[in-house]
Design a protein around this nucleic acid. Sequence first.
DNA 1: TCCGGCAACTAGAGCGGTTTAGTACCGAAG
DNA 2: CTTCGGTACTAAACCGCTCTAGTTGCCGGA
Lengths: 341, 341
Amino acid sequence: MGRPTIADIAQRVGVSKGAVSFALNGRPGVSEATRARILEVAREMNWRPHSAARALGGARAEAVGLVIARPASTLGVEPFFAQLLSGLQARLSRQQVAMHLLVVEDSEAEIEVYREWTSAHRVDGFILVDPKVRDPRFAALEELGVPAVVLGGPGRHGALASVWADDREAMVSVVDYLAALGHRRVAHVAGLPGLRHTQRRMRALRDSVKRLGLVDAVSLPTDFSDAEGAAATRTLLSRGTRPTAVVYDSDVMALAGLGVAGEMGVAVPGELSIVAFDDSVLTRVTHPSITSLSRDTVALGGQVADVLLEVIADPGARRVVKTGTPRLVVRQSTAPPLLAR
Amino acid sequence: MGRPTIADIAQRVGVSKGAVSFALNGRPGVSEATRARILEVAREMNWRPHSAARALGGARAEAVGLVIARPASTLGVEPFFAQLLSGLQARLSRQQVAMHLLVVEDSEAEIEVYREWTSAHRVDGFILVDPKVRDPRFAALEELGVPAVVLGGPGRHGALASVWADDREAMVSVVDYLAALGHRRVAHVAGLPGLRHTQRRMRALRDSVKRLGLVDAVSLPTDFSDAEGAAATRTLLSRGTRPTAVVYDSDVMALAGLGVAGEMGVAVPGELSIVAFDDSVLTRVTHPSITSLSRDTVALGGQVADVLLEVIADPGARRVVKTGTPRLVVRQSTAPPLLAR
DNA sequence: TCCGGCAACTAGAGCGGTTTAGTACCGAAG
DNA sequence: CTTCGGTACTAAACCGCTCTAGTTGCCGGA
C-alpha cells in the first residue's frame, strides 16, 4: 500500500471519511473520544495531508511566489537578493509557508508565471520586486485578483500592497553630507535605468545638486554588475574634470569602483570620496571601508513577508508600509576633497 | 464563471472531457481537426492547467525542493548560496521547473518537510546540501524513494545521486603551495565542524602538514560567519608563535580575517598570508586581493540541477558526478613569509 | 453480406481531500 | 406519547484533470 489516506484511517477507525476530515482539521462534528482515536490512528499510520488534494478543494497552498526577471547570474552577485530571501524565509518559515522561486527572462514571462501559478493554486500570493517605470505587472496581478505586495514604492500600484523605503530622502541625505564636506562635483553610478527606484534616485540627485548649487550631477546607468560599475568609474575618472565624489547604487559596484580608483592611482578618500547605496559585509571589511547607506535588508524581507501574509489573510486590506529610511553610516571612504575650491 | 476548466472547453467544442485532455496533452485519440479546434478554443478561453488537479492524478509537480537547515541569516552572508541558487535557477527555469525553497531549524525539521512535500506531490525531487558526518537525511530520503541529489560527497550516501568537488585535493594544493613559498606554520579557520567537507578539509590539512614536515596544523571551527571568522583570526594572531599563513573556509571569513590583521597591525602578505577556500567578487576587489580556491559555484548549481532532472526522469539512474577540483588563483594576499627560518 | 479491425470518441472511475445534505439517536419539554 | 433541538455521524457530491474500458461508425476483405 502506498501512502495512507483519510479513507484508510476511516476504515481502520470504523468511521466515515468525513468524520476523519473533521477530526483532523479540528472542527466540530465529532466527539472528543472519536477525535482522539482518529488522531491517534493518523499518527500511527504516519498520515500526512496531500496538499494537491486540498488545493483542489480551494484551500490555501501555504506558499508564496517570488518571480524574478533578471539574468540568473545577478542573484549571486548582489547580496541584496540573498539578504531579502533570508528575511523572507525567516518570517515565512515560522508559519510553515514555503516559497516558490523562479527566475525568468522578462516581465512578460513573469506575468505568464503569475497566471499559471495563480490558476493552479500553487501559491497564495506574490512578492513583486524591481517595480519598473511603466510596469505591466501591476495590472496583471490586479486582474488576477491575487494577493501581492510590491517591494518598492511609493504608491501608484493600483490596489496592491507595498513596502517601500524612501530612496529620495536617502539620496538627499547623501548629497547633503557630501556638500557639507565641501564636494561640488558629485557623480552617480546608477543601477538599471528602467527601475523606479533608480529613477527616483537620479531625480533626487539632480534636484539636490540644483538646490545646493553644485556643479555636476551625472548619473551613469548600469546593470548593477561589478563589471559595469568598474567601467562607469573608469569613464568618470578619465574625464578632464573628475568628480570628487561618486555615489554607487550598490555595494558591489562601490567595491568595484574602489578597485578602479586604486588601479588608476586615485587616492580614496583624498582625491575621491565613495558612497555605497547598500550596506553589507563587503563595505565593512574593505580598506578603506566604505561609507554606506545602511538599510536592514533582512528586516525588510521580514516586513514584506508580514504584509503579504496579512493581505493573504484579509484580501480586502490595502497595506502600504514605509520602512525606515536608510541611514548614512560614515566610514573611511569619505572625506573633504583635497582640492576644494 | 471562474477559471475555465477542460469541462468548459469540452462543452464549447462539443466533445467530451477526455477528448480535450487528449488534445491538450498531445496524445493520440483525437483527429487532427478536432485537436486543432480544441487547442484554439483553449487559447481563446485562456485556459491553463490546474497543477493541483494534475498532481492528484500522480503527474509531475514540475518543481524541485531545496530545504536548508541553517539560520536564515547565513543565506545573506555567504555568496555561496546565492550563487548556487543562481546556477540552479538558470538550468531549472529553462525547463520551466520551479523551486520550492524553505529554511528550517534543523535536520529533523528538514526531514519532516521532505516527508510532507513528497507525500503531497509538491515537488519531484530534492537537493540536499551540507551533508553531515552522520546524516539521518540520507536514509530518510531513500526511504521516501524520492529522487534526490546530494551536493557534496564523495559517495556513501546510499543510492542517492551526488555532485561533489574534491575538497581534499584542493586543500592539499593550497598547503603544497604555501609550503613551497616557505611557510611552516599554517592555520585553518574552518566552517561548521559537523559538515562532511569541513572534516575532509581538516583531515587533508593534517595529512599534508605531516607529509610535508610542517610545524603546526590547527583548525579552528566556526559557523561560517564573519564574526566568528574574525574572532578565530584574533585568537590565532594573539598566540605566542603566530601562524604565517591562514586558510579560511569561506571568502567572507577571509575578508574578516584580513580586517583583523589590519586592525592588529599585521602586514598582509608580509607577515601573514591569507587564502580563501571560496572565490567571489569579494576576494577580487579587496586590497590586497585575496588568493583563493576558485570554483564556479554557478556552474556547480547548474550541474546539480542537471543531475536532479536526470534522476527525476529516470529514477533508476544513480549518478555520481565529480566536478572540477577548485583551482588556486594566486592574488596579492600570499607571499613567502618574511621571517622564514 | 457479414465480420474484424481500427480510428475517434465517450462515459465514468479515480486521485485525496472538503463540505453539504441528510439520518439516527438522545434528552427535555409540552 | 409526540415533538423539538441538538449532537454525532454517514453518504455522496465536488474540485479539475487523467486514464481506462467501452461504444460507435467506417472501411476493407472474404
